[in-house]
């Protein structure tokens, strides 16, 4: 069943055509990878989905709803959370505080109740902490719970960002190069986690990824982009053996 689709999407930056008439569909429960050479427009696709940019043409549909015009801060409420290619953490906070921000979209009492720190607010805060602990458990972040994120190693910071997105309880998770900068060991953990996210949490995943071994292992289908266009779409094996894809990667 199609859960998410992009139809005839285009995005221009002045003279640069970042996305050119791109269409694809993602099924419920799928892990869908987007690959392509540098500057292919992969991040731009995620940015259009999360409303960072207005597309110049085309539309984005999620769970039967057109979300092309949604306000940027309402995307997560629709059920879509994301991570960033260049880690975007709240540097002033601890791991716990970052994850609690992931829970922002859930109620934590109205403004005046917060001002008074009412029992209702306290209960909501405790409930959010409990929810965050589940994510901490899932991604093995317990040793870093109270560490300031600014001092954490790069690999852990990436996991914190993933955890924060999961804390928002999305139904669709967008990952922008989750394995870049990770060592092989961490990448292997990541593959297992993506599997957990897909199978245990039932979250659909779209991930932009360079590491083909991770793509082959984790993804059900792969979209290869070049110059904003769709070059190939299919199983990891099909796409990897596609001559056009090979040509694009070899720098045609």
């Amino acid at each position: 069943m199609t859960m998410f689709s992009v139809r005839n999407l285009s995005l221009r930056f002045g003279g640069v055509q970042a996305i050119a008439d791109l269409s694809f569909e993602v099924a419920q429960g799928e892990v869908f990878a987007i690959i392509g050479p540098n500057g292919a427009g992969k991040t731009s696709v995620l940015n259009v989905i999360t409303r960072v940019f207005d597309p110049s043409a085309g539309s984005v549909h999620f769970e039967g709803r057109d979300i092309t015009q949604l306000a940027r801060h309402r995307v997560v409420n629709a059920g879509i959370a994301r991570t960033f290619q260049n880690i975007e953490l709240f540097e002033g906070g601890t791991v716990l505080e970052n994850l609690l921000l992931g829970r922002h979209r859930f109620g934590h009492g109205n403004f005046f109740a917060q001002w008074l720190w009412t029992p209702g607010v306290r209960a909501a805060e405790a409930a959010s902490q409990a929810a965050v602990e589940q994510v901490i458990e899932l991604l093995d972040l317990a040793p870093h719970r109270k560490s300031p994120v600014a001092g954490l190693p790069y690999g852990v910071r990436k996991v914190v960002e993933l955890a924060r997105a999961l804390a928002a309880r999305p139904r669709l998770l967008l990952l922008d190069e989750p394995s870049s900068g990770l060592n092989p060991e961490e990448t292997r953990d990541l593959a297992f986690w993506i599997d957990d996210i897909q199978n245990d949490l039932g979250v659909t995943v779209i991930m932009v990824e360079h590491d083909m071994s991770l793509v082959s292992e984790a993804a059900d289908r792969v979209l290869c982009m070049n110059l904003g266009q769709r070059l190939a779409l299919g199983t990891p094996a099909e796409v990897q053996s596609n001559p056009a894809v090979i040509a694009a990667y070899l720098g045609a």
Binding site: R51, V76, A81, L89, E91, G92, R164, A168
Partner: peptide, 13 residues
Amino acid sequence: RDSEAAAYGLGIW
């Protein structure tokens, strides 16, 4: 204060 991009992405207006 720390990241507007992430804030938007988590539903902070």
